[in-house]
Design a protein around this nucleic acid. Structure first.
Lengths: 351, 351
DNA sequence: CTGTTAGCGCGTTCAC
DNA sequence: GTGAACGCGCTAACAG
């Protein structure tokens, strides 16, 4: 009788109540705990009652209430990912990798962006705590003031792993790339290829990674005093393009280019088209997530910084921390090795 | 006495127990309910006891347990954002906008990616339900099978808003751009500028937006039978670049280009450098998030599809649904208007 | 094999 | 004014 069915359906809609094990118990004529046991394949139960209960759970579209489970088990199966900003580069890769892997491990993910604002970063940590996360993955924003809050986090039993943009703290685990070393090697590469006035286009000078990479460059410069190294900074692709252009125009002798990131590469790549602006450039080397360089029709070498690899390593560390939440006093510091590659245009060049 | 203090601190650390109202009650020598009332400024309590309890809550760094609150109140202040994939384009903009705005409204956000896999999409919906979300924002993946699950969602009292990549359903609200109209207008624009063999580079042909845009193009073609319109499809930037290149080489007469997305634009933009491949092109028109076109040194027009605006509209709709969770039978369909712009290189061209 | 009971942290009656 | 008791959905220890 469609009329009655519709009526029942209407009741159902209006009440908008999720089916609980209680409902199933009533429907099956057994007690709540029997349902719970059946749903968990408890060995004490006969397989026919298990089947019966499971089938009616299916029919009713039973979905266990995660909130109740969390309250009981006292773990939220929730972690937070706090990123300095949501940009086109690198971050989507990180989000994707962390999101996938955490889900695979039965954890849900809270993603928060600090928008390069240290107040917001702290606010994000607060939100994470209030949301009951078991662990937090953070890539710090510029001028981060997180140091003051690390101890409270640890006191709360919340695991913390810093990645990419980190800070030194005796109790905190980190995952980074070899910023200094890579920059050092990059300049070595340029120098080995007879580039002498070299222009380094770096990101925001306040960032820890900018400083580390700059340090690496300067280290190499000290070893080789005849090398002329120039710096220019840019906060985004636009600035990278314009600042580099201006610089190259007034320093026509420059024949080697080091670009710190994809964002900068994208801006500077515009100059590669106007062969006049880059006619003197012998070699370009960058640090990249790996995707962009192959779209650029100009021979360039790049160190691949795999967001996926870093995310996996950081998450692995975090889960490790969460599981053994006992005081593992020694903080781990993982370093992601980078691989030097050349884009497809280099090969064409060689042929 | 620092020694004892440290000891207490150690206990605190080892136990790693979050302070609850129970602890505060014990510390204050009152009952649990009194603490609860004090923390909520209940009028029945004397202001001095309120102050006392609040101050000891502060000292103990009391943080209310969100899980317990959710279990009790049955609303989680949690919404889900399900995107078809996490790509560099458009999605970061969406994530950023939704994330910001939902936080501002006191809601936390669960971000899930379907990786263009309809099974995963359904799995994501399940995860959202299990997590107790109050509403879900979805941009569908290719070949989505969500239709079969919409009714169950609605039955569960979970609000649902589809955006960008949607499907028709009598009960579901949507936010889209005017896909057909915009494509129609774009071709009109090219035609008005004396482009006659026109090449349209579109995305995955299975996507609803690809189909809608193609429909718009064909609508215009029917009105103007002397117009020669060619199609070529690409799943990503690489394919866009190579397919377009191949196509232009074998169809040298083509002088107008319609590019469906940023992803395609990025690929095709590589061709703009080799003036030989695009020497015959008079006009290029695209649909873009707005950022990329100004980085490309080739005159082009583009319809700006603001991810921010779409995200805000969709979220606004979702909150509206959540608040008035009574049966608002009429589904709303919002359309985000697009604005035609030209990139900075067009201006230079005119000067 | 199965039901009863207690309790996770919290808010809210309902008595005192 | 304030405490005891109940219940949100679920699991687990304890009885039968």
């Amino acid at each position: 009788m469609p009329c009655q069915e519709e009526f029942i359906h209407e009741i159902y809609r209006v009440s908008m109540k999720r089916i609980t094990i209680k409902d199933i118990a009533r429907l099956a004529g057994v007690s709540i705990s029997t349902v719970s046991r059946a749903l968990h394949d408890h060995p004490d139960l006969s397989s026919d009652i298990i089947q019966k209960i499971k089938s009616i759970a299916d029919e009713q579209h039973y979905i266990p209430n995660t909130t109740a489970l969390n309250l009981k088990s006292k773990n939220s199966k929730l972690i937070a990912l706090i990123v300095p900003e949501i940009s086109m580069f690198y971050i989507p890769e990180i989000i994707k990798a962390v999101s996938e892997l955490s889900l695979k491990n039965g954890y849900r993910l809270l993603i928060l962006s600090s928008d390069e604002n240290s107040d917001k970063e702290i606010e994000n940590i607060k939100i994470s705590i209030q949301s009951g996360v078991e662990g937090i993955l953070v890539s710090l924003c510029n001028n981060s003031r997180i140091q003051d809050h690390i101890q409270s986090l640890l006191d709360l039993g919340i695991s913390l792993v810093l990645f990419d943009k980190t800070v030194d703290h005796p109790m905190v685990d980190t995952v980074t790339i070899q910023d200094e070393l890579v920059a050092h090697e990059a300049i070595q590469f340029l120098s080995d290829h007879q580039c002498n006035p070299i222009l380094c286009v770096l990101g925001n000078p306040g960032l820890s990674i900018t400083q580390a990479r700059k340090r690496g460059i300067e280290q190499f410069a000290q070893k080789k005093s005849d090398l002329d190294i120039q710096f220019c900074f840019a906060n985004n692709s636009f600035e990278a393009k314009h600042n580099t252009k201006k610089f190259l125009q007034s320093n026509q002798s420059i024949n080697g280019l080091f670009l710190m990131s994809d964002e900068i590469l994208l801006g500077v790549s515009e100059l590669f088209r106007q062969s006049s602006s880059v006619s003197g450039i012998r070699q370009v080397i960058t640090i990249s997530e790996g995707w962009l360089p192959n779209l650029i029709e100009f021979p360039l070498h790049f160190y691949v910084q795999s967001g996926k690899e870093m995310a996996h390593s950081a998450l692995d560390l975090l889960f490790q921390k969460i599981k053994s939440s006992q005081e593992n006093l020694s903080a781990q510091h993982r370093i992601i090795p980078l691989e030097l590659r050349k884009n497809s245009f280099c090969d064409l060049d060689e042929v």
